[in-house]
């Protein structure tokens, strides 16, 4: 190889390089689309589960919404507070600490407690059973037991007990609400982790009917309401409800007084 070919090579590549880079830099100016660099940073901080709990199509969509000010970091129920505050920092927002929510299954109607109504022979999902005949168990309000909530959980935080009742792992639960959506009977609700007293029943049938389908149904006897002097429990439409606003921190828990044991303490006081 002689000097001239090296020379030609350098010249050629130089010219080519110059022509194309000039073209590109002009094009990049003419055709540039402004993209907020914060979006990628925020995507990195979001959990990336694309669970949709924030109401957007996924973490990337959420990031865009955050940058455009349509959403707040707190709308993501899944991300940990550290990342949320980092996102807030990027956005220049103050983030308010919010209490973690977890899912609670408001039913105790497993196969021991709930009566069996009939043999169900259709598609083995709660929703399908709910829409056709109501599934094999007798209570029209309670758990069907085919585990739609379990399949819906993106965090593996809900499992089926031996007797066919979903159990929430309160540590793993992020409060994304997928199970709440999945349950056709609406027996799963999100509650702040500091709440421990629950009426684990959703049956609004008359007491006779309720008792006939499930051992642990609320029979709206009103003992809980009387025991707390109306400050804590109220029976509305055949069902006792906890009034969390009025509920004092150290209540006289009527758990032992409830004749069907449907008032229960869930979780350990003090957990976060």
């Amino acid at each position: 190889m002689d000097i001239s070919s090296i020379f030609y090579a350098i010249i050629t590549m130089g010219v080519l390089g110059f022509v194309f880079s000039a073209g590109l830099s002009i094009a990049s100016k003419k055709l540039s689309v402004k993209e907020d660099p914060r979006i990628t940073k925020i995507i990195d901080l979001l959990p990336g589960a694309n669970c949709g709990a924030c109401g957007y199509a996924g973490c990337a969509a959420m990031a865009e919404a955050l940058v455009s000010g349509k959403a707040e970091p707190a709308n993501c129920p899944v991300a940990n507070s550290e990342n949320l505050s980092k996102i807030a920092e990027i956005l220049g927002l103050e983030v308010t600490e919010k209490e973690r929510k977890v899912a609670v299954v408001l039913c105790q109607g497993d196969t021991n407690n709930q009566k069996k109504k009939a043999e169900y022979l259709g598609v083995q999902t709660c929703l399908a059973a709910h829409l056709v005949g109501g599934g094999p168990r007798a209570c029209n309000w309670g758990c069907i037991g085919y585990g739609d909530c379990i399949r819906a959980c993106p965090f593996d935080a809900i499992h089926m007990s031996e007797n066919g009742l979903p159990v929430v792992d309160r540590e793993k639960c992020t409060g994304c609400g997928k199970c709440v959506e999945a349950c056709p009977r609406n027996i799963i609700e999100l509650h702040p982790i500091s709440r421990h007293v629950f009426v684990l029943c959703k049956n609004r049938d008359n007491p006779k009917l309720a008792r006939s389908v499930c051992k642990t149904a609320c029979i709206s006897c009103g003992i809980c309401e009387r025991a707390t002097g109306g400050k804590g429990f109220k029976v509305i439409n055949n069902l006792a409800e906890v009034d969390y606003d009025l509920y004092t921190k150290e209540p006289v828990l009527p758990t032992d007084k409830c004749p069907t044991k449907c008032i229960v303490i869930v979780g350990n006081p003090g957990e976060t």
Partner: peptide, 17 residues
């Protein structure tokens, strides 16, 4: 210019741009 050995580099440059 008898620069065939530059084909990889120059092709890729063209394509990339």
């Amino acid at each position: 210019l008898k620069l065939e050995f530059l084909q990889i580099v120059s092709f890729i440059l063209v394509i990339a741009s």
